[in-house]
């Protein structure tokens, strides 16, 4: 069964366009542009010293979060690592709360106490933002067990990167998930670099969709720069998990345009390499072309761009005007408060 499900998926724009509604195109475009503009602003605020510490931008990977969420249903859970801002926006979290968490303000999603890597939203089913590489993979497996136990038909979307794919606990999780047929979709965002180390330098095998093969977990390699390819694969994987067949692995081939974090000069790859991806594989350019092919007017696209710009500016404003938390907050949320 595992073998049968192995295949590479990639939409051929011409063929697929007929299946895509204009509304979907506009929706995904808007969501992807929101992530990109938000992250660009976050980068600026970091440069201005308004965001301290660590800040891992999602620019380049937008199609993964947006395409995956398009296949999620209400009640499904999401959990990811530290490159989490894009996921939070795709999950529907308020951009103001996300930005205010970055600036460490009381209006942030964790009252400013978590920061860039540690954000949560119970209403969005967003179980974090985790700063320790790979740790969330086992937690996501536990979320899936809770779904299984309650027989609620929900799925745990558990994200991690190509670097985290080498952590031992990932394979402990794979075994348990398949043993107990847990409804979990493991999404490996392969952006080619684990911090400064390319996949090939740290991995004996680079086809990450096959990492569950010895457990009998089916996997697919997906063009993570094509939001529709992502969505198609996400639907297949979610259906597999939801129907009681157990876990499913999606390896998203994607790319991060910026450094690993804001302090990373990215000297481990060439500018040409980055420019090449931007010019030929950009996920937003891709959907923009589809919009144009579908006959959407430039004005309509421009309107979305302007709306997104306003949302992001409002978030930036909120993140600077929301007060800093009161020092008494330092000691709250440590233990259950009586």
């Amino acid at each position: 069964m595992a073998r049968a499900a192995q295949k590479d998926s990639k939409t051929e724009s011409g063929k697929k366009l007929s299946n895509v509604s204009k509304d979907d195109l506009l929706k995904y475009y808007r969501e992807m542009v929101l992530i990109r503009r938000f992250e660009e602003r976050a980068g600026q605020l970091y440069g201005m010293g308004l965001i301290g510490g660590f800040c891992h931008l999602y620019i380049g990977q937008e199609a993964v979060a947006v395409g995956m969420y398009a296949a999620a249903e209400k009640g499904d859970q999401v959990i990811t690592g530290y490159r989490d801002h894009g996921h939070m926006l795709a999950a529907g979290m308020d951009p103001r709360e996300v930005m205010a968490e970055l600036t460490g303000r009381i209006g942030g999603s964790s009252k400013g106490k978590g920061g860039s890597m540690h954000m949560f939203d119970i209403e969005a089913g967003f179980f974090g933002g985790h700063g320790i590489v790979g740790a969330q993979v086992s937690l996501g497996t536990g979320l899936a067990f809770a779904d299984f136990y309650r027989q609620n038909g929900n799925v745990s979307f558990t994200y991690f990167g190509d670097g985290a794919a080498n952590q031992g606990q990932v394979y402990e999780s794979f075994n348990m998930a398949q043993l107990w047929k847990l409804p979990v979709v493991y999404v490996i965002e392969n952006n080619e670099y684990a911090m400064g180390t390319s996949l090939a330098r740290a991995s004996a095998t680079v086809n990450l969709s096959q990492r569950g093969a010895s457990f009998g977990i089916p996997g697919e390699t997906v063009d993570g720069m094509d939001v529709f390819a992502v969505k198609d694969a996400a639907e297949r994987a979610a259906e597999h998990a939801r129907s009681g067949k157990g876990p499913y692995i999606l390896e998203m081939k994607t790319y991060r345009y910026r450094g690993h974090s804001m302090s990373d000069p990215a000297k481990y790859r060439s500018k040409d390499e980055v420019d090449e991806v931007k010019a030929t594989r950009d996920p937003i350019d891709h959907i923009k072309t589809m919009l144009q092919q579908a006959g959407v007017a430039e004005d309509e696209i421009k309107t979305i761009d302007n709306q997104v710009k306003a949302i992001v500016l409002e978030a930036v404003d909120f993140a600077q005007t929301s007060p800093e938390p009161d020092p008494s907050e330092l000691y709250t949320d440590v233990y259950l408060e009586a």
């Binding site: 400013g112 106490k113 330092l330 440590v334």
Partner: peptide, 9 residues
């Protein structure tokens, strides 16, 4: 302090 290391403080 006897708290996790906070982001904001």
């Amino acid at each position: 302090w006897d708290t996790p290391y906070p982001h904001a403080f």
